Computed example of a mutant assay.
Amino acid sequence: MYSPHRRGLLLGAAAGAAGLAILGRPSIGNAAVALQGPLKPNVYRFRLGSFEVTTILDGLAPNDGPHPTFGADQTPEAAAELATANFLPADTGVNSFTPVVVNTGTQVILFDTGNGPARRPAVGNLAASLTAAGILPESVDIVVLTHFHGDHIGGLMEGETAAFPNAAYVAGRTEYDFWTHPDRLSGPTENSAKLVQANVVPYAERMNFIEPGADIITGITAIEAFGHSPGHMAYNIESEGRRLVLTADTANHYVMSLQKPDWEVRFDMDKAKAAATRKSIFGMLAADKVPFVGYHMPFPAVGYVEPMGDGFRYVAAGYQFDL
C-alpha cells in the first residue's frame, strides 16, 4: 500500500546517496576554482526627461573612520554607535567618488573630473570608466567644476595634456578667486592651491566664471552651497518636468553627514556654514521629494532623503528611473 511516510524516507535516502556521490566526485582537472575578487559596477545611466544622466565611479578608497573625519566635535563612542546602528563598521570606512555626465542630446556636460591617476593612481579611474560608458573624452563639451578640492580637479590633466581637449569650462567665481589668491600658496591651503595652479589655472582663458543662480544651459542652474569650500556649488538639473539635484560635496557621508548634519566634517572649510547648507539643501530635497546625486554617496550615488530626527535618512533610488 502507498505510504507518504515510506515514500518520503525512500526519496530522502536516494537524495542522500546522490549527495554523497557528488561530494565524493573529484573536480574537473582536480584543481580548485579560483576566486576572482569583488566586482562592483562603475557606470549607471538613466533618463531624466529628455536628458540622459550617467554616474561614473572614479574609485573607492578605504580609510579609518568614521571618527574623527566625521563627528570631530563628538566622542569616538558616539560616532561608533551611529555607525553600528546603521550596520557599518565602527573603525573603517570607504570613500567613493562619483563624477556625473549629463547628455542633453546636443551637448555632453561633465561635472567634476575625479582624482586623476597621477594624483591617486588606485582611485583615478574616470577616463577608463568614461570609455566603458561609451563617452569619449573629446566628446565632452563642457566641464563643470563644483569646487576645487583635489578629488574633483585631479582628472583635468593627463600628464601635460588636457584630458578633455574640446571642452569649455565652468567654475564659480568665488571658488576661483579664493584658490588662486597668492596667500593660498602657503599654510594649510598650500597643497590644494598648488594643484589648482597646475590643473585649473591653465584653463582660465576657456573658463566661464559664474555666480549662484546662473544657468549653465537651459535646465541646469547653479545653487549656492558654500561652506564645504568657499565657493562650493550644487546644481539643479531639470528636463520635461523631471528634476534632479547634483549636491556634490554638500554631504560627504550617507549616514554621518545626513543623519547628523550638525556634526563637524574634517573636509569642510567653514564647518558652521557647511552644516547650515546641509540642513537647507537636504531640507528642501526632503520637503519636495526631489532625488539627488551626491559625489560621495554609495554608488550609483542616486537617492532621496526623508526627515529623521534632527537630520535625514538616505533612501537609495530603486526602479524610479527605469520607468
Rank of each mutant, 00 (worst) to 15 (best):
residue 149 H to Y: 06
residue 101 V to K: 00
residue 240 E to W: 08
residue 124 G to N: 06
residue 203 Y to D: 08
residue 157 M to W: 01
residue 116 G to T: 08
residue 262 D to I: 03
residue 47 R to N: 15
residue 187 G to Q: 09
residue 139 S to R: 11
residue 295 Y to E: 09
residue 298 P to V: 12
residue 129 S to K: 04
residue 128 A to F: 08
residue 106 T to E: 09
residue 272 A to Y: 11
residue 311 G to M: 07
residue 105 G to M: 01
residue 52 E to R: 08
residue 226 F to G: 03
residue 319 Y to C: 14
residue 75 T to Y: 04
residue 62 P to F: 01
residue 109 I to S: 03
residue 251 A to F: 07
residue 237 I to Y: 00
residue 103 N to L: 07
residue 92 T to I: 15
residue 297 M to L: 14
residue 136 L to Y: 07
residue 301 A to P: 07
residue 92 T to V: 15
residue 4 P to E: 02
residue 8 G to F: 09
residue 58 D to I: 00
residue 82 L to N: 10
residue 109 I to K: 06
residue 109 I to Y: 03
residue 190 E to F: 01
residue 214 A to V: 14
residue 143 V to K: 07
residue 74 Q to G: 06
residue 303 G to L: 12
residue 258 L to T: 05
residue 152 H to E: 06
residue 23 L to G: 10
residue 124 G to V: 00
residue 132 A to I: 03
residue 127 A to D: 11
residue 83 A to S: 03
residue 105 G to K: 08
residue 187 G to F: 10
residue 169 Y to G: 06
residue 320 Q to T: 08
residue 294 G to L: 07
residue 212 P to K: 14
residue 227 G to F: 04
residue 306 E to H: 09
residue 132 A to E: 04
residue 308 M to D: 14
residue 61 A to L: 11
residue 22 I to Y: 14
residue 234 A to C: 10
residue 191 N to V: 12
residue 173 R to E: 13
residue 206 R to H: 15
residue 232 H to V: 10
residue 127 A to G: 09
residue 323 L to T: 13
residue 22 I to L: 14
residue 27 S to I: 08
residue 75 T to H: 07
residue 69 T to A: 11
residue 247 T to E: 01
residue 224 E to Q: 09
residue 315 V to K: 15
residue 298 P to Q: 10
residue 16 G to Q: 04
residue 73 D to W: 02
residue 124 G to K: 01
residue 127 A to Q: 11
residue 286 A to P: 03
residue 98 T to G: 03
residue 257 S to W: 02
residue 48 L to M: 11
residue 1 M to V: 14
residue 76 P to Q: 09
residue 11 L to E: 12
residue 60 L to W: 12
residue 230 P to H: 00
residue 53 V to A: 00
residue 11 L to G: 05
residue 73 D to G: 05
residue 101 V to M: 11
residue 72 A to F: 14
residue 232 H to G: 06
residue 133 A to L: 02
residue 117 P to K: 05
residue 2 Y to L: 13
residue 291 P to N: 01
residue 101 V to T: 10
residue 321 F to Y: 09
residue 167 A to P: 01
residue 109 I to P: 01
residue 217 I to N: 06
